[in-house]
Computed example of a mutant assay.
Amino acid sequence: MSGPISKILVVGATGSIGSHVVALALQAGYAVRALTRDVARAADLPAQAERVVGDVAHAQTLESAVEGVDAIVFTHGAQGQGKLGSEQVDYGAVRNILAALKGRTVRIALMTAIGVTDRTGSYNRSTEAHDWKRRAERLVRASGLAYTIVRPGWFDYQEAGQNRLVFLQGDRRHAGTPADGVVARRQIAQVLVASLASAAAERKTLELVAEHGAAQHDLDPLFLALQADPADALDAVRDLQNMPLGSEPERVRNDLARMSSSRLR
């Protein structure tokens, strides 16, 4: 179990989900630091949130961002930036932030996507976004840090009354459409923030969707019902084994080796 959390860094804080994370984390009593490339872009965030300038694509700009934080919530994304953006942002942000920690212990909440293990669908073939998000998940698992990984369904497709959160595992919904499941942005933020203080959420990976029913305020029973990821495994419990490490790019294997060795120092 990670130690008590008082200060959170939000990566992707000015985005449509990150801004909800900032607000909910402040409501929960956390001190919040918002990472942004441009302070002007963070003008609409609550005044209580600390702003820090850094670029996730450049590791040397991130040391001040991680200084003194107890937890990091990743809500960033490279939507529309193609294959290079997927590597530099979806994956690079996680690699660079973890490297900037220089072995310090923090709690991680990482948002990726439902269907992240679907390598053959048209979306992944054109963007490689699933592959790079999944590689980011692997870095988090290899780091040895306490974590929760949330793979949300489609945003903004929910109907009225779809307030009941459902946690799934195994990532078997690969339609590539809202049929895979839908969820509101604020609901995603709720789960990410709640995971930080939950011992039941540690080393858990889940797909998140919303169905018709009443909203839950205590999420611990949902986290408790999940299986933990196997110790020292790169992939989540019940995931498809369709990304062999030996077939991964050399630079990715090197990143994983560095991440694994850094936690043993």
Rank of each mutant, 00 (worst) to 15 (best):
V56C: 13
S262Y: 05
G161K: 04
H174V: 11
P178E: 09
H212N: 15
Q227I: 11
D55G: 02
R95I: 08
L35S: 07
Q187L: 03
N254I: 12
L62D: 01
L234P: 05
I149K: 05
I114F: 09
F223T: 07
G213A: 07
L240M: 13
G170C: 01
E67P: 04
R95L: 13
L9Q: 01
A214D: 14
L196S: 03
R119Y: 10
Q88P: 05
Y91K: 03
A146S: 14
A113Q: 09
A136R: 02
A142E: 06
G181K: 06
I17K: 07
A146Q: 10
I114D: 09
H174D: 08
G144L: 06
R51M: 10
A40D: 14
A200C: 05
A93P: 09
V193S: 04
L226S: 07
A49R: 01
A34Q: 04
A100Y: 08
A225Q: 11
S2P: 09
A228I: 08
S6K: 14
D156S: 14
F167I: 03
A78I: 02
G213T: 08
R185G: 04
T205V: 08
R125H: 12
Q241L: 11
A100H: 06
Q79E: 11
A210S: 15
N163C: 10
F167Q: 04
N242R: 05
P152E: 03
A42N: 00
G68K: 13
S143K: 05
A189Q: 00
S126P: 03
L62R: 02
Q162L: 08
E202H: 09
R172K: 15
V237N: 11
S86C: 12
L264F: 10
L168M: 12
E248C: 10
M1T: 13
Q187R: 00
M243A: 13
V53H: 03
T36M: 08
L234Y: 10
A197T: 13
R251G: 10
G213E: 04
E50N: 08
T14A: 01
A197G: 10
G3K: 13
G115M: 03
L219P: 07
G103S: 04
G29L: 02
R203Q: 14
T36C: 02
G115Q: 01
G18M: 05
Y147M: 07
R134T: 08
V191F: 00
A28I: 04
S126E: 12
W132L: 00
S262I: 09
T177F: 09
G103A: 06
L26E: 00
V94Q: 03
S143T: 00
H130W: 05
R172E: 14
A78M: 05
L219H: 00
D255A: 15
L219C: 00
S261D: 14
F155R: 07
G161M: 02
A197N: 10
V56Y: 06
S19C: 07
G29V: 08
G54N: 05
Q88S: 13
L35K: 02
W154Y: 14
G181S: 04
K83V: 15
V52Q: 01
D44C: 12
R141D: 01
V237Q: 13
R107E: 00
S6T: 15
L226I: 09
A142Y: 04
P244T: 06
A13D: 03
H130R: 10
V69M: 00
A184V: 08
L226V: 03
Q169M: 05
V10D: 02
V52T: 10
A23D: 14
D218Y: 01
V252R: 09
A59G: 13
P221T: 06
L9T: 05
K133I: 06
A129L: 08
A109S: 15
H58Y: 11
R119G: 10
